[in-house]
Design a binder for these strands. Sequence first.
RNA 1: GCGGAUGUGGCGGAAUUGGCAGACGCACCAGACUUAGGAUCUGGCGGGUAACACCGUGGGGGUUCGAGUCCCUUCAUCCGCACCA
Length: 823
Amino acid sequence: MENKYDFKVIETKWQHYWEEHGFYKVSEDPGRPKYYDLEMFPYPSGNLHMGHVRNYAIGDVVARFKAMNGFNVLHPMGWDAFGLPAENAAIKNGIHPSIWTDTNMENMKSQLKTMGISYDWDREIATCKPDYYKFTQWMFLKLYEHGLAYKKKSAVNWCPSCQTVLANEQVVDGGCERCEAVVEKKQLEQWFFKITDYAQRLLDDLEMLPGWPEKVKIMQRNWIGRSEGCQFDMKIKGSDQVVPVFTTRADTVFGVTYMVMAPEHPLVADISQNTPQAQEVKEFVERIKNLSEIARTSTEVEKEGVFTGAYAINPMNGEEVPIWIANYVLMDYGTGAIMAVPAHDQRDFDFARKYNLPIRVVIQGNDTPLDGADLTEAYVGDGKMVNSGTFDGNSVESGIAAVIAYMEEHGIGQGSINYRLRDWLISRQRYWGAPIPIVYCNDCGMVPVPEEDLPVLLPEDVEFKPSGESPLNYVRSFFETNCPNCGKEARRETDTMDTFVCSSWYFDRFCSPHESEQPFDKAATDYWMPVDQYIGGVEHAILHLMYARFFTKFLYDIKWLSCQEPFTNLLTQGMVLKDGSKMSKSKGNVVSPEDIINTYGADTARLFILFASPPERDLEWSDAGVEGAYRFLNRVWRLVVDYAHLINSQDGEGAELDEAARQLRFKTHATIKKVTDDIEGRFNFNTAISAIMELSNMLGAYRDNPQPNPAVVKEALESLLLMLSPFSPHIAEELWQLTGHEGSITLMAWPQYDPSALVQDEIEMVIQINGKVRDRIMVPSDSNEEEVRQQCMQTERIAAQLQGKTVQKMIVVPGKLVNIVAR
RNA sequence: GCGGAUGUGGCGGAAUUGGCAGACGCACCAGACUUAGGAUCUGGCGGGUAACACCGUGGGGGUUCGAGUCCCUUCAUCCGCACCA
C-alpha cells in the first residue's frame, strides 16, 4: 500500500486545520455544563522537557475526553514568566530579561503547538507583561487595604557573595544556589502577606477537597501544623516583666524545673543584665545569631545553652526556676520561650541531663520510676498526674483540661492554638518581578499607589550588576517619585514580589484574560471557576497550592470570587525518570521532547508517555517503549487501510451476526466501557490504551475472516479511532477522514456502549478444588447455582481429582467460579 | 526521629469490590515472507517438569473455602517534614 503513515505531514496538517477553524476557542455557554481543565503553567526556561510533555499530554486527554462528552471545556495555557533565571541570563549574557523571556515563550509555544494540545491560545497570558502584573499589584493593594500585607523586620537569607537576599527555595543545603557561598541570616525590612490569618480555614477546608490526593492534604496539614495547648505568663523574679510561654502539655506544669528562651528573644538582654552571666549570655547570643539556618535548627546539632542568671516564677506553685537560653528553642514558633519539663519531654530531658538540671516526674505511667534520677529517657505516654497538688490522679487528657480551666479561672493563662505556618515573605530584592506598589513619603509614611495609577511599570532601561544586586536601586527615574497623598518628593519601593504571588491568581485571569480595568470579570469566573481538574507536579504540593488557596479565600471574602477553593480535583503526576533517576543535564540522561517528536511524531510521544505508567507514578523513560508505541500507531494505520474497502461499502447492515462477528462486537462494546471507565473514573490512561490495543489486535485477527461483517467492522474501527483520538489526535483525524467521514473527529461524540452487546449466551466458569484452578467450563449465562454445581462435578478432570476425596463444601460465585472443598 | 508512598516475570506495568496472578507493551526465542531485514506477519515466553505434580506477588506469621489484595510483624528503596514546645 502506497498510503504510508507519514506523521510529519499529518501532524502539521491537522494542527493547521484546528488553528484555522478555531476549534479550541471557547466562551461561556450557560446551555452546556462547563469543565475547566488546567495544567500548571510553566516557567519559560526556553525548552519543553519530558515532565512538561507528560503534564500536558495528561491534561489534553482530559480536555478532549470531556469535550467529546458534551462539556464546554476551558483549556488555557500561559507563562509563569517572572523569575530569577531571566535575570541571571541578563547578568551572564547581557540579554535583557524581557527579551530572553519573550524568546523562550515563543520557542516553547511553538514546541507546545507541535504536541497538538487543544489549548485556547487566545487566552494566553504571561505574568511578566504589564497587563497582567498590573493586577498582581492590584492584589497587593487589596491585601494591604484589608490589613493582610504588612512590613516587618525579619531575619532573611543573605548571600554575602552575591550581595542579595535569597528566597528559601534558593538556598540549597545552606548555600547559595548560584555561587554556593554559605548563606547568612540578616535582619531586613520585608513585606509579608498574612496567610496565618487563614490558617484555620486553610486547614478546615481541606475537608472540602475529596478530589485531592490524601498525600497532598497531609502535607498541607503538617505544614499548617495546628497544635492545641495553652499560653500563660511566667513572671521574672525581681522584675515587672513577664515572659509568655506556650505548651501543649499543661498537665506537666508542676514538673517545670527550668525555663528556656530563644537566644533571639527580646527580653534576653534585659534579664541577664547585671548578672554574673551577662557576658557569657551575650557571647552565646552572638554566636547563635551568625549560624546559618541549617546549623541553627538541624536536629543533628547538639543542644546547648547558658544560664541567664535570672529566675522565673511558676504561676501554678510559686516555685522559682532558672531561666536559660538555648539553641533548641526557636524565636518564631509559639512565644519564643518554653517551660521545660525534662521528665516528660525528650528535648528538655537531653538538655537537663547535659547541664545537671533537676528532673521531676509528674506523670506516673505503669512502670515509670517516681524519681527523675532513675529515668533513662523522658516519659511521654499516658498516666496519672502526681506531685501536682490537687490535680493528682488526673489522666494526661483530663489533666490538660483541668489545668487550663484552673488557669483561666485564676487569670494565669488561657487555652491557645498555635500554628507552624508562618506569614508569607513576598519581598524580593530583584528586578525581574512585579514591583510592589508602595511609595515612602517623609511626611505621610508608607502610601499605597492608587489603583488608577497601576501598573507601576518596570523600567526597561536598566543596568545589571554582576553582583546580582537589583538594578532598580540605581534607576532614579523609577524610585524617585511623588507622594500620591501630598505630592511631595518620595521614594518608591524597589523590591518586587515573589513569583508565587503571580501564580496565585492566574487561573482566575484565564477566565477573562483581556480585561483591562479589572483583574477578571466576575461573571466569567462565576461561570468557569473553580478549576475542575488541576494537574501538575507534586513539588508544588505545599507552596503554590497553599498560596493559591489563600488568595482564593481572600478574593471570596472581598466578594470577587464565588468559590472558596480554586481546584476541585487535583492530580499530581509523577516524575519522568531515565535509568532510575530524574532527567538532568549533570547526569546526562536527558531525552529531548523535540527530538522524539521529530523522529516519531507527537502522537507517538503522547501515546508512549501515557501508556508507560499511570499518571501519579514515576515513569521510566524507554526508547524501546517509544518504538512500541510507534509500531502500534503504524498497525492501526495499516488496519484502517486494509479495511477501507469494506467500511466504505454499505453491505451487511442488519444482517445476522455469526459467532466471530458477535465476538468482535462484544469486544468493541466491552472496550468502550473499559476505556470510558478508565479515563473518567480513575485517570488510568495506561490501561485504557492497553484496552484499545486489545481491540486493535482482535480487529487485526478478524482480517483473516473470509466473510467479514462490514457493519461490525465499521463500528469497531470507528470506536477505535474515537477512543484513540484523545491520546493521539492527529492520526485519529487523518484515519477518520480516510474512512470517509466528513469533518473532524474532535467534534464527534464519545462512543457509548450498548449493554445488550455485552450480554453473552455462555460464560466461562473456573472450577477450583481447595482454591486451586483445576478446570474451566462453559455454562449458559442464565444457569442457576444448582445447574452449575451439577455440571462442574461432571468434567473428567474434576472427577479424576476428586477420586478418593469427600466433598465437604462447594462455594459458587455466580458468573465467576466454583470452589470445591474436598478432603 | 515523625509522616507518606512503593516493593509483582529479563524490563515498564495489569489484576478496579477477597475470586483464573502476569492483561497490554518492551526484550528475547522459533517460524513465515524476502536478494536482504533492524520492516511486516504467525507462534512461544514466571520458575520447574518429558508431561503432570509442585513452587511463585520483598521476608516471616495469621484470618479465610479462597489473599498480590485484609490483619500482625519485619526488611528494603524513594519522597516530604525535621528540636514546632
